[in-house]
Amino acid sequence: MSNRITTKLQEDKKLLSIYFTAGYPALNDTVQIIQDLEKNGVDMIEIGLPFSDPLADGPTIQESSTAALKNGMTTEIIFNQLKDIRKTVSIPLIIMGYFNPMLQYGVEAFCKKCQEIGIDGLIMPDLPLDVYKEDYEATFKKYGLINIFLITPQTSDVRIQQIDDASNGFIYMVSSASVTGSKSGFGQEQESYFERIASMNLKNPQIVGFGIKDEETFKQATKTAKGAIIGSAFIKHLTANGTDKTAEFTKLIR
């Protein structure tokens, strides 16, 4: 079977992807949140594996991660919660987290478990390109997992080419030089960055993340890119409105 991310990327539409932290607001909300997001037309989901020291994240995701860990979330529990997810959910599912919990679980065991569950890809921001290629690429591929790399406005063209070569799904385009959840709105700088990347004609489509929070930012981000990822704004919605109002959130995006 071909990877669900690959299939999804071939659809002739802009993709909406949503990130949430597993175990937040409550420990056992994970499956419900995923099902509701799919029901409301979301194309792809990043399931956040909470980490004690999320150094690329701003306050919103830091706080949801701390709360999830306090709720008792562990790697084992997430895998358990997700074990039957493919009976009800068919959109691509990606696990996003930091490398240390994966390392402690055992990289191979982690990948194997992802394949059993039906996870399609991984985003590990602090697993760098060279280490991935040398030590883990073969394992990811063995278990059919797509590894997703980040690029930022500061990433050089040469480096982007290397990342494009090593990617086989999409490239996660970080919208601005920032941690998650900190910028409001896109300006001239983003515009020219989006255009620069579009003009590179990369083999992998790009999905923009960081700073997408509403219809306007979603539209701006997907003018040239294939899709956009919303994280902090959705977590804020969960905090304010609870888990049963997903439709109200997705309606605001498109």
């Binding site: 980490f51 004690s52 020291d53 860990l69 790697t75 930091y98 919990p101 390392l103 402690q104």
Partner: peptide
């Protein structure tokens, strides 16, 4: 500690079995 990754380097690190620091 056990081997883990903190602040950008792989080193001996005090952590839970789940890899939380």
């Amino acid at each position: 500690g056990k081997v883990g990754v903190i602040h950008g380097c792989k080193t001996m690190l005090m952590q839970t079995t789940d890899g939380q620091i």
